[in-house]
Design a protein around this nucleic acid. Structure first.
Lengths: 157, 157
DNA sequence: CGGGAATAGTTTAGTTTTCAACTAGGTTGT
DNA sequence: ACAACCTAGTTGAAAACTAAACTATTCCCG
């Protein structure tokens, strides 16, 4: 019975409360991290995230599409952000020899150094507002849960 | 020994993995919810959130500062968003009699109707990509954890 | 009371993000 | 080989967001 009019399956009180806690918490947490990185290192959270992913890639470089994927950003957004990072001298773009459409984003030494400095402070903030206020068991639950969420989202795109 | 040079307390592998799962998951989830609400109802996630909080307030209205707080938005952002919602006819602003600096944001009937329509679809998406893929125990852990995060963040502001 | 500090909210300007259009190179099928 | 289609990435304009300055009111305290 395909029925657009039927009552939706509303969340129960507990589910509602937990979902809301997540929505609020994640908004505030991202906001906090963003301000913190900006004020101390002049990097937005999304710029930071790009540097992190590049630093973990073999040769400190990654194709744009892959990087967009790892950093959970749209390609368009990544293009703009990379332009910014390039003018700051933290990233360099070079075209891919095999596929002439392709572009590699490459973390510069200066970029790596900037990331190292930022990461030291960032990890303290992550601890202070996230890790250290959460029961270790609950942290593992968060890991399990969000890995499942990521898998589910990956299915539809 | 207040020492800016000492090694930071890096996260262990598991903490790192769980923190990352959350960062990615929350970015993708917010992105998904935003697109979903926009395409089906022409509302951004933050507009939706404002309507929700107003709908729960006594008399469907709330002082701007309170609303900003409930919706985890800056006051500036709320002002802009409210202007938009007002031109859409979903919200009305009226000045506060007691405190002449103050402004009440009030959900219009049209706004309430729009929210009801949006909420029906939204809850399905929340289930589909969040509630239904998470073990109920883990969901409760998320609730506990993010309530703690919110409390910690509230301390510093 | 009166003056300085604090609070509520808006506005302006600058930056970032989104959306859709676009360029260009690759792939497939005939 | 070529036409149709797909993929990679960029761009430009519009929309949304941020930060800081600003207006107006209220609070606090000598």
């Amino acid at each position: 019975m395909l029925d657009g009019m039927s009552e939706p399956r509303w969340l129960d009180a507990g589910q509602q409360r937990d979902w809301r806690a997540f929505v609020d918490g994640s908004l505030r947490l991202h906001d906090l991290m963003d301000r913190d990185l900006k004020s101390k290192h002049g990097l937005s959270e999304s710029e930071y995230e790009i540097l992190v992913r590049l630093s973990e890639a073999p040769g400190h470089s990654l194709r744009m599409a892959e990087l967009a994927d790892h950093a959970s950003q749209s390609r368009s957004r990544l293009s703009h952000t990379c332009t910014r990072l390039e003018t700051k001298g933290l990233v360099r773009r070079e075209s891919c020899p095999n596929d002439k459409r392709g572009v590699f984003a490459h973390l510069t030494d200066e970029g790596f150094a900037a990331l190292e400095r930022a990461a030291r402070d960032h990890v303290e903030t992550v601890r202070d507002f996230f890790i250290d206020v959460i029961d270790p068991e609950d942290l593992q639950a968060i890991g399990r849960a969000f890995r499942a969420v990521n898998e589910r989202i990956a299915e539809v795109r």
